[in-house]
Design a protein around this nucleic acid. Sequence first.
DNA 1: AACGCTAGAGAACGCTCGTTCTCCGCTCCT
DNA 2: AGGAGCGGAGAACGAGCGTTCTCTAGCGTT
Lengths: 217, 217
Amino acid sequence: MSEANRRPGDEAVRAAVLAAADRLYYALGIQAVGMDALRAETGVSLKRLYSLFPSKESIVEEVLHGRHRLWNDLVEDAVRAGGARQRLVAIYDMLARWFDQDDFRGCMFINSFGELGATSPRIAEIVRAHKAQFQARLTELVVEAGASSSLAAQLAILAEGAQTTAAIAGTSDAARQARAAAEVLIDAALRDPDAESARTAPASTAPASTAPTGTAS
Amino acid sequence: MSEANRRPGDEAVRAAVLAAADRLYYALGIQAVGMDALRAETGVSLKRLYSLFPSKESIVEEVLHGRHRLWNDLVEDAVRAGGARQRLVAIYDMLARWFDQDDFRGCMFINSFGELGATSPRIAEIVRAHKAQFQARLTELVVEAGASSSLAAQLAILAEGAQTTAAIAGTSDAARQARAAAEVLIDAALRDPDAESARTAPASTAPASTAPTGTAS
DNA sequence: AACGCTAGAGAACGCTCGTTCTCCGCTCCT
DNA sequence: AGGAGCGGAGAACGAGCGTTCTCTAGCGTT
């Protein structure tokens, strides 16, 4: 019933609030942006804010869902053209373009998880689902390229690491370094499509490196 | 002068406070743990807390410095034995052992950066310095192994990505996947010690993939 | 034995947060 | 035209934060 009692214009105001919340939460962190900052930024009164959204946490959730759709669009744009190998590599070029934007401050999902993952199970679950879906999409692309699915996990780790490294270092170098690493991994996986069983098992090239490394710590 | 007026026992109490702060901040996030929670956990009164530390932020900084030393010790333990290649790979085995601990909740530096990096420049700088020093150590190890220094950046990205992926997914799989990827990258770099100039430059194997990928978005 | 001083415990302060409530002005129906 | 009802603005509320202050109990000194 609260869904039915919307006035005309509600959707536009909701969208404006969510856009402002996204911008502020991303730039400053979620806990650093109060509802009053949202009111000041949008000009929407507190009462109206609470008639559009039941709580701050629901705004956070909607912002994350919006970021999820945006991320998916960026990925699909990147993998639209080219051969299977090139489509995988293009993801890291997309990352480079993103990192170069002056308001880049890392992956909002990673930031939110670090800030609220231990406190809010719902946000933790949204972050988990987002990352799981990206990995699933990567697996599709990897399989289409003819490599084994373990390559997808490796490429995902490279993408995650590039995002945190670029955010902390403040440069976009990590995207190019991740791209170079991805090319090596893709080529190796395509050359030897089921090498992961030999890789994830006890190492074949350097015997006995896992277990005896240390009784220490 | 405040440094000189310490009573006997101060150092032990300081250490206990820092240990409790580390545990609570890591488990719940920094902003979620108030000074009163620290008092309840340690039994040290608020007045004594503020005679031992000038502010909460200084406690956070000391906790991060402690984590920095702990991380360095873990890395040095891992790279103590074996050949140059094996020492690099051993870092990912160390990560696997860490991820398997039941209180694992990701890298505290990454979490703190996401939570406070935009608000507190001092904490952002501590995180940056920590990650830069790890990359510098990796570069030493990579050069000793006879590979070009660009491998170090790639291995660092793998380590960062493994930490965030393991924290969000809640499993330690990422450490093994990062290890497998690292082996491929190390072997490729050792096979062709100055391939990075061909990799980071406009791609040689798949021509014209960077720029024309998109006028889009 | 009496007194000045230090240190401990926790109440208190000022602030900010998320959320709700009150008041006021506008609008729409008869 | 006039009154009933609705929505907007922002003050108010209770809780929690980091930090400080007050009060008291214990100690060492003469």
